[in-house]
């Protein structure tokens, strides 16, 4: 049962679908997931994300999930565009599917570029995405930094649906450090709390990545408990305001993910000593500038008026 690792598709290669006859031109490799590779492709001047699977069953499972999501979440844009096979240069058939291309950067790149002030909002968007999935009867499963893209104004997107599992079944795919079972904090059954747990770890990974890696290296399995994650949260100024929320996520005591998202948002809006709201220098300068201008124009008015 060897899993075929097909050769990488070179930029410029044209792929023709066997069933639907669509033609795609490979632009570049976007990423490599657990179940295959994702390329940026072009068809009739529109860019798409194109996923080639190593295994027909795994890929088809993902397609099934995406289709069922599209049916249940009619509000969302249909992101599954095409499902087909192509014949590779190795003479074998490779299954692929095509999705809407989501432009965005990784969460850490985004916060580095735009500032950590965006974190609460991005988090809220992400929680809403998860709540949407949960509402349709699914759990994302493999939530981790690599599977989140952030677009303009902190709009977070989930990518790679390989781990998406029906509520009540087992989580299909997960990553150890984000896994509730790994931290002795519960089962690997798909429930909304599973995603919220991973979300809490994702927050820790974002701000305390080094310490988290250190923990996973040094802790004995029996000592891998959420309390260790809480220590990192308490010690980080960006996470501390959310400590209560994160604790509930790690304990699985958020009963409803919509409510959890709303609670997160309330924390994000909470005014107070958390932020020393210093007026940015450019704003102070602008204010000074306009005051001077005002004074000058008043003087001018008074003089000419007289």
């Amino acid at each position: 049962m060897a899993t075929s690792v097909e050769p990488r598709l070179a930029p410029g290669t044209v792929i023709a679908g066997k069933w639907n006859q669509n033609r795609y031109r490979i632009e570049r490799l976007l990423g490599e997931g657990a179940n295959g590779r994702v390329y940026l492709v072009e068809r009739e001047r529109v860019l798409y994300a194109f996923k080639v699977g190593a295994d027909a069953v795994d890929l088809q499972s993902e397609v099934n999930v995406l289709k069922s999501l599209a049916q249940r979440q009619r509000g969302e844009e249909a992101f599954l565009v095409d499902v087909d096979d192509y014949k590779g240069t190795d003479g074998r058939e490779h299954p692929f599917y095509v999705m809407r291309y989501v432009r965005g950067s990784s969460l850490s790149d985004y916060l580095n570029r735009e500032g950590a002030d965006w974190f609460p909002l991005v988090g809220f968007h992400l929680l809403n995405k998860l709540a949407g999935l949960h509402g349709s009867g699914w759990v994302f499963g493999d939530l981790k930094l690599e599977n989140v893209l952030v677009g303009d104004y902190g709009r977070a997107q989930l990518v790679d649906y390989g781990g998406v599992s029906e509520i009540g079944k087992s989580v299909r795919q997960f990553t150890e450090i984000y896994d509730r079972g790994y931290w002795s904090a519960g089962s690997r059954s798909a429930d909304p709390q599973y995603d919220l747990f991973s979300y809490a770890v994702l927050c820790v990974q974002l701000f305390e990545g080094k310490r988290l890696a250190e923990l996973t290296r040094t802790l004995l399995p029996q000592n891998r408990v959420p309390e260790e994650l809480m220590k990192l949260i308490q010690g980080n100024p960006a996470l501390k305001p959310f400590a209560g929320w994160l604790r509930k996520a790690l304990q699985g005591s958020h009963t409803d993910s919509r409510e959890a998202a709303a609670a997160w948002q309330r924390l994000a809006h909470r005014p107070g000593k958390r932020r020393r709201t210093r007026t940015p220098r450019w704003m102070r300068r602008l204010l000074l500038g306009s005051a001077l201008l005002f004074a000058a124009s008043m003087i001018w008015l008074i003089r000419t008026g007289l």
Binding site: W19, A56, V57, Q60, S61, V63, N64, K67, V83, D84, D85, E93, P95
Partner: peptide, 18 residues
């Protein structure tokens, strides 16, 4: 093989496998 089935039929079969 699964690859010989049209994507629609394949979807059905994989649902059963899952």
């Amino acid at each position: 093989s699964l690859e010989e089935l049209s994507p629609d039929k394949r979807g059905e079969v994989v649902r059963v496998i899952d």
